[in-house]
């Protein structure tokens, strides 16, 4: 695919004799929301590490945001966003300080950080708590801030690793509103989740089983292909084999 934001061909990772990821071939286009599902231990984290330039693949090829995962890992890191529940913002810094810190890490100029930071705090309705330590803010607020901070440097793609864990069902849906909004503007979203209903919100999903892609397609197409009534149903069937 010429305009693919992620393009992999037979991407493989071995740990000793163990094949953690086995010939993964995948192509994501601009503005696509891609749900990356799999049981614990199926190889999801290994794939994400390779695609974010943190782990060298054993064989195959892949490019992310136009950069090669073997040769240009630094360029990949500068051109992607990443957010997970475990690794995101500093709890003992305020929203404003977190923005300044991450803006600096991404190499943005001070004036730009200040300007963008203000816009961001405004858009998220966080101006009142801009100088309050993060640790005392509700999880839902932290999650939307983490998402926006990961986009400060305007990457083409964002990796979201279980972004919505632990919040109530309304906050979880508000988070997806943000995802949809950015995807409509052309951001590619690569998301993992244990909530199977969220898989249905994606344009396409894949289900990994023991290092291989056991299913790939739109949620509707996969359900009809496997005769499953929900993605949950399909997941259980594939992952339990």
């Amino acid at each position: 695919m010429p305009d693919a934001v992620i393009d992999t061909l037979n991407l493989t990772k071995m740990f000793g004799t163990f094949t953690a990821v086995d010939t993964l071939t995948l192509s994501l286009e601009k503005g696509e929301i891609f749900g990356f599902l799999g049981a614990n231990g199926a190889g999801k984290t290994t794939v994400i590490k390779m695609l974010t330039g943190l782990l060298a693949p054993t064989s195959g090829s892949a490019s992310v945001a136009g950069f090669d995962v073997f040769k240009a890992t630094e360029s990949i890191k500068q051109n992607i966003g990443y957010m997970s529940q475990r690794f995101s913002l500093y709890e003992d810094l305020t929203p404003r300080e977190n923005i300044r810190f991450w803006g600096g890490i991404y190499g943005l100029e001070k004036t730009i950080i200040k300007e963008k930071g203000l816009d961001l705090l405004n858009a998220l309705d966080l101006l009142d708590v801009a100088d309050t330590r993060l640790s005392s803010l509700p999880l839902g607020w932290k999650q939307k801030l983490a998402f926006s901070v990961a986009l400060l440097h305007e990457p083409k793609i964002i990796f979201l690793d279980e972004p919505t864990g632990g919040v109530d069902p309304v906050t979880r849906r508000r988070f997806w509103d943000m995802i949809y909004e950015k995807a409509d503007k052309g951001l590619t979203v690569f998301v993992t989740t244990h909530y199977m209903d969220e898989a249905e919100y994606c344009d396409r999903i894949s289900i990994m089983v023991e290092g291989r892609m056991a299913a790939l397609g739109t949620p509707a197409a996969l359900k009809s292909e496997f005769g499953a009534k929900s993605i949950d149903d399909l997941f259980i069937r594939l992952a339990r084999r």
């Binding site: 799999g38 049981a39 279980e162 997941f235």
Partner: peptide, 10 residues
């Protein structure tokens, strides 16, 4: 079951 996949949860 927090953070546990759908199969193990079941």
């Amino acid at each position: 079951t927090t953070g546990v996949d759908a199969v193990s949860r079941r």
